[in-house]
Nucleic acid binder design. Structure first.
Length: 553
RNA sequence: CGGGGCGUAGCUCAGCCUGGUUAGAGCGCUGCUUUUGGGGAGCAGAGGCCGAAGGUUCGAAUCCUUCCGCCCCGACCA
């Protein structure tokens, strides 16, 4: 087909909105793909929606290919469904009420609704079932950001699997996992599958797909040899070995006046910072003061602490610290503390300097197992310079966007909603479920983050709004029309810039909009009865006769 | 929710501290002239409840109070 720029709503801007930071945010607004309605609320303009639909179509084809069935559930959901699974208390939910006072929820995701329908499954003979839809999700995000990167309303492709046993459920999970790789590859986005955070739930099978990007909210930790990759919230790096001072037979108290940071402590005592400990007292949600102990050069990972404690916690207050330790922050340590000590794995071997629980004093030669009895857990955030836990290679850290998430949750939803079936042996069992989500809008933004230059967007052909951007310069309107007809007949979608503008503006807009192939019909090419074909990515240009257009790529 | 910043033309911004003609610039927009392979030039125009509401004052875009909206950092993130 042929779209004429003179009639399209395609408002391009010379300047980016002042408050935009992320590259995708700036370029998508400037190039006329999206416009903001409110915080985290975006309209896809005609070109943006074309890209969105192309991404949807790729997802649809890959879902269909694994036997998943497309359907459509409503956005408005009776609150009772959410009460049945205990999720009605989630803070990000939008609640609405009808005129009669009935309560509804705008879903964050559709586990409740799909599991509700799964109650019609009666027999193992009907299993497995794979279902999906593209539907609006609403989330009362505390902080939308970065254009399309984090929004309050968006369309998600969410899939649900229902199986009779774990073996079958893993097969469904695996089908979706593999399909996701194909989807991201076809969309031209680099995405890495990583083990995701399981938090206090623990034990579930869950993977994130992270797309490296200039802006984003997840940090991907990756080994240079490709042996290892994980979200920084769960990643384990191997830190450098400390330079330990000579070992002592028992801890030895030293006066350390006005020394409160580990760096200062190391310097004051002439000891490697990595041979000191950092004491992080926290108060758990059930009111206990627990001491999290890590190496002096490390940072405590809050997500790992959550996993280790299996309960939420916050930093202890000064008063709580004083009461539990008899000293203030800066001189705290595990020796003599009679609460729970959770120590990082790096503290299993060796003697460290630790706070003496006496203001202005530390202990040298503190050894786990001898001087205090901790529970060991992985607590540290991986940092630059760590080595790969698999092969010892260097780890790199990349800022990423989460573009997909797959999750096996067993009977988490079917239990509450009573979705069960009769198995071959005549026993009633809960359906075992999984869910699988992709945000096409985030994929779109991730592609722009990964594929652009100083002049604008560079779309992969598979999701470009049009295949060819045909510029009709003055005097060459006729040959441009011919070229457009020929390309359209050959199956290409053509954006014909027939606007009455100077060439420079058309070129600038073409670069900004980022259609992979630009064809210029102008006086220069007219002499040869030809057009100039330029590759947006490489900038290579060649003159081609109109007759040969559409016969090859 | 904590911290920071910003609301003046479609976009980017100046003016505000130190109150006082008719509120400005660049880009964009409309008409005409000229130009035509990388956002060209000229002439003439249109376009504003200065985020909102109160207050102080003879007088408020400017000072004060409250509210609203948006952005960034953090917390949160099924």
């Amino acid at each position: 087909m042929i779209a004429r720029a003179s009639q399209l709503f395609l408002p391009t801007l010379r300047d980016a909105p002042a408050d935009a930071e992320a590259i995708s945010h700036k370029l998508l607004v400037r190039a006329g793909y999206i416009r903001q309605v409110g915080a985290g609320l975006w309209t896809f303009l005609p070109l943006g929606w074309r890209v969105h639909r192309k991404i949807e179509q790729i997802i649809r084809e890959e879902m269909d290919a694994i036997g998943s069935q497309e359907m459509l559930a409503p956005v408005l959901t009776p609150v009772e469904l959410w009460e049945a699974t205990g999720r009605e208390k989630i803070g990000e939910l939008f609640h609405v009420t009808d005129r009669a006072g009935r309560k509804f929820i705008l879903p964050l995701t559709h586990e409740e609704t799909f599991t509700f329908h799964a109650r019609e499954i009666q027999s193992y003979k009907e299993l497995p079932q794979l279902w999906y839809h593209f539907q609006t999700k609403d989330r009362d995000e505390p902080r939308p950001r970065g254009g399309l990167l984090r929004v309050r309303e968006f369309i998600m492709k969410d899939s649900y699997s229902f199986d009779r046993d774990e073996k079958s459920a893993y097969e469904s999970f695996e089908k979706n996992r593999v399909a996701y790789h194909r989807i991201f590859e076809r969309c031209g986005v680099e995405a890495h599958e990583v083990k995701a955070e399981s938090g206090i739930m623990g034990g579930e099978l869950t993977y994130d797909f992270l797309a490296p990007s200039g802006s984003g909210e997840n940090i991907l930790v990756r080994c240079e040899n490709g042996d290892y990759s994980a979200d920084s919230e769960v990643a384990s790096g191997v830190p450098r070995a400390p330079k330990f001072p000579p070992a002592l037979n028992a801890p030895e108290e030293v006066e350390t006046p006005n020394v409160t940071t580990c760096e200062a402590l190391g310097e004051f005592l002439g000891v490697d910072v990595a041979a000191t400990t950092k004491a992080m007292p926290v108060t758990t949600e059930d009111g206990r003061v627990v001491l999290a102990l890590i190496r002096g050069d490390d940072r405590l990972s809050e997500s790992k602490l959550l996993s280790a404690l299996r309960i939420g916690s916050r930093p202890a207050t000064d008063d709580e610290i004083r009461e539990a330790f008899g000293a203030s922050g800066g001189s705290l340590g595990p020796v003599g503390f009679n609460g729970e000590v959770v120590a990082d794995l790096t503290l299993q071997e060796g003697q460290f300097v630790a706070g003496a629980n006496k203001d202005g004093f530390h202990l040298r030669g503190v050894q786990a197992g001898r001087d205090y009895e901790p529970r060991f857990a992985d607590l540290r955030e991986p940092i630059e310079g760590d080595r790969c836990p698999e092969c010892g290679g260097a780890l790199t850290f990349l800022t990423t966007i989460e573009v997909g998430h797959i999750f096996y949750f067993a009977d988490r939803y079917s239990a509450g909603l009573g979705a069960s079936f009769l198995d071959e042996d005549g026993t009633e069992k809960p359906l075992l479920g999984g869910s699988y989500g992709i945000g096409p809008g985030r994929v779109l933004a991730a592609v722009v983050e990964q594929s652009n230059d100083e002049n604008g967007i560079i779309w992969p052909d598979a999701i470009a709004p049009y295949n060819v951007h045909l510029l009709a310069l003055r005097g060459a309107e006729e040959i441009a029309e011919q070229a457009a007809e020929r390309l359209s007949a050959a199956g290409y979608d053509v954006l014909l810039d027939d606007r009455d503008l100077r060439p420079g503006e058309k070129f600038a807009d073409a670069d900004l909009i980022g259609i992979p192939v630009r064809i210029t019909a102008g006086k220069k090419s007219l002499e040869d009865g030809a057009v100039d074909v330029r590759d947006r990515r490489t900038g290579e240009e060649r003159r081609v006769s109109v007759d040969s257009l559409g016969k090859n790529a």
